[in-house]
């Protein structure tokens, strides 16, 4: 029997009838049509399918779409601004060469976005620990860590700037 599932994916409301056995990753890729979320190991290990559900990073191959009822999902497609400006994490992966083949990248960026939401100033160790659930078969970890450090700096900088702007706005 199919079940109705209503979700918000990258800010857009979605409603579909799905079989209970449909995994969230298949829902995102085949039903919603967002193929940026990759299927890697399919055994809950590699993290390529990482998305955030209500702000928490999860492996979308280990959750059924029906479990996402009423939840807000962000995938890699939801990271850039509407005008195409890359998210600081995406920009940092570009600038620091945080990818080689790129297959693991969407998962790494989503896992890193969760990591930075919990810890805006992680040390190298904390980044490596925080990304333990993601594998890069090109073994490009050094640059991935650099990318996350650089994104953290950029995001904290823009926050500080925003603070200054609002302080300036209050003064004027």
């Amino acid at each position: 029997m199919k079940h109705k599932v209503a979700t918000t994916v990258n800010g857009q409301r979605r409603e579909h009838e799905v079989e209970p056995r449909l995994l969230l990753v298949h829902y995102l890729r085949d039903v919603v049509g967002l193929t940026g979320t990759h299927i890697g190991c399919d055994t809950s290990q590699c993290g390529a399918c990482t998305v955030t559900v209500d702000g928490k990073a999860v492996k979308s191959c280990t959750m059924f779409a029906v479990q996402a009822e009423g939840k807000s999902i962000t995938t890699i497609e939801g990271m850039a601004a509407k005008d195409g400006t890359l998210h600081p994490l995406q920009q940092a992966f570009w600038d620091e060469h945080g990818l080689q083949c790129g297959f693991c990248t969407p998962g790494f960026i989503m896992a890193a976005s969760y990591l930075l939401s919990q810890n805006p100033n992680p040390t190298e160790d904390e980044i490596r620990q925080g990304l333990e659930g993601n594998l890069c078969r090109c073994t490009g970890y050094v640059n991935i860590v650099k990318s996350v450090q650089s994104a953290a700096k950029a995001m904290n900088g823009s926050k500080a700037n925003a603070g200054e702007h609002s302080a300036a706005a209050r003064r004027s």
């Binding site: 809950s44 993290g47 990482t50 928490k56 990073a57 999860v58 492996k59 280990t62 959750m63 896992a111 969760y114 990591l115 925080g130 990304l131 333990e132 659930g133 993601n134």
Partner: peptide, 9 residues
Amino acid sequence: VGDNQIRNM
């Protein structure tokens, strides 16, 4: 236990 993603679930 597991990793961040697994610990969230």
